[in-house]
Design a protein around this nucleic acid. Structure first.
Lengths: 109, 109
DNA sequence: CTTGATATATAGATTCTCTGTATATAGAAT
DNA sequence: ATTCTATATACAGAGAATCTATATATCAAG
């Protein structure tokens, strides 16, 4: 809950790096991989998936899920992989910059 | 430029921890302390200051600046100090959670 | 046959941050 | 004198992302 704006796209792209997933699966994977710390809301996720597909970073098709249900599976495109690297790079830069302000002596508590 | 939404308040509060500053000084301090990585826009900063004052986390009064100019100086309140600790704690938790997703093996590149 | 988990979808509200613009003064330079 | 630059605040409007709330539908389990 309460993701910082600008991080969801990166997280979604990252979730797809191991292979295609449907929306529901992406949300579960992110929640689990974050150690239950991040709970992506579906009302944020589905618009995000639409956004990412429009930009050409993911592509999708209807398939049948593990539970025998109709589900739209998303996979990373080459452009998406590139975008992920770029966003991650910006993220680490940003975190480092914030760190210099919040913790100038590097005395991580 | 292009701060992640939700971080500005924390950065502003942190800028005031060493003592009162006016808006212009806060922007310069953050830019400098971040190693020129973060450039806070005044169009974001002044609304943020208003917001923070409304919430009781900072207080302000008109004084004369180092350059002999009229300027509104802001200082942290006790509630602001508490808020800063809280926001920083949430920030580090969030960064850690994102780290578990983006870099599960802790292989910081 | 009812409940819970799976799965997608959208409308609307909320909240920040940014761009662009306006105003004004001090001090330095020409 | 005048012009330029740095200092300083302020607000309107745009843009973008996330959240809440809601609706729909199917499968499996009890």
């Amino acid at each position: 809950m309460d993701l910082l704006q600008g991080t969801l796209d990166m997280l979604v792209l990252r979730a797809l790096i191991l292979g295609p997933l449907h929306g529901y699966g992406i949300a579960k994977a992110l929640r689990s991989q974050s150690g239950e710390a991040l709970a992506i809301e579906f009302g944020s996720l589905y618009p995000a998936l639409k956004r990412l597909e429009l930009k050409g970073w993911i592509s999708s098709d209807w398939q049948t899920s593990e539970h025998n249900r109709r589900a739209r599976f998303y996979k990373l495109t080459a452009a998406g992989r590139k975008q992920l690297r770029s966003e991650y790079s910006k993220w680490t830069d940003f975190v480092a910059a914030v760190g210099r302000i919040m913790d100038p002596d590097g005395a991580a508590k």
